[in-house]
Simulated scan of single mutants.
Amino acid sequence: MIVAIVACEIGFWVLLVAGLAARYLLKARGLSTALLLSVPLVDVALLVFSVIDLRSGGEAALGHALAAVYLGVSVAFGHRMLGWADQRFAHRFAGGPPPVALPAKGTRERVSHERRMWLRHVAAYGIAGLILLLFAALVGDADRTASLWGPYRLWTIVLVIDGLVSFSYTARRSISSAKER
């Protein structure tokens, strides 16, 4: 299962770079579109592989939990990662404008950015949770799926810490604004 996750991660970046190379280096818009539209198919392949593995009697294990995490993160952050890579590729190879930098620390825009990123993190967490529930339902035996939830519990702690850090920007901004008055 871990091999499938690694293969999907590699597939994601290969299709992304190939799509951007076709767009900016080869000027092949049709090929670029086809390659970039196939990037989400990597996620579908991982989901299908996981479901087939579980339905054919495979034991729910850490690999399945990591696949759910990977899929949640990919769905929640995938479009943003595509945009991030597109900006940098266009700038480096096609004379595009420089990539947009993060807003400066302490600004209202940065505070808003941090909250939006945390909400994406919450979305990834929720999507992964739904996928884990799907996996557990496919197996149909709570004892055989108990190992799926260990990484998710750890992720819960990470999500809370990320939320505290994210909202600390809001608190710092509020304190700074109050001092300026």
Rank of each mutant, 00 (worst) to 15 (best):
E9I: 00
E9K: 00
G11F: 00
W13P: 01
A18T: 01
G19H: 02
G19R: 03
L20G: 04
Y24M: 06
L36R: 01
L37M: 14
L37E: 03
S38Q: 02
S38H: 08
L41S: 13
V44N: 05
S50N: 12
D53S: 14
D53Q: 12
R55S: 15
R55E: 12
G57Y: 07
A60P: 08
A61K: 06
H64C: 05
A65G: 05
A67H: 07
A67T: 13
L71R: 04
F77C: 00
G78P: 03
R80G: 09
M81I: 12
L82G: 11
W84D: 06
R92H: 00
G95H: 03
G96M: 01
G96F: 08
G96K: 08
P99I: 01
R108K: 14
E109K: 12
R116F: 11
R116V: 12
W118F: 15
R120F: 12
Y125K: 02
I127H: 05
L130D: 08
L132R: 01
L134Y: 04
A142H: 07
D143G: 11
D143Y: 02
S147H: 11
Y152L: 05
R153Q: 11
R153T: 09
L154M: 11
I157P: 01
L159Q: 09
I161A: 15
L164T: 08
L164V: 15
L164A: 14
S177R: 12
A178N: 08
E180V: 11
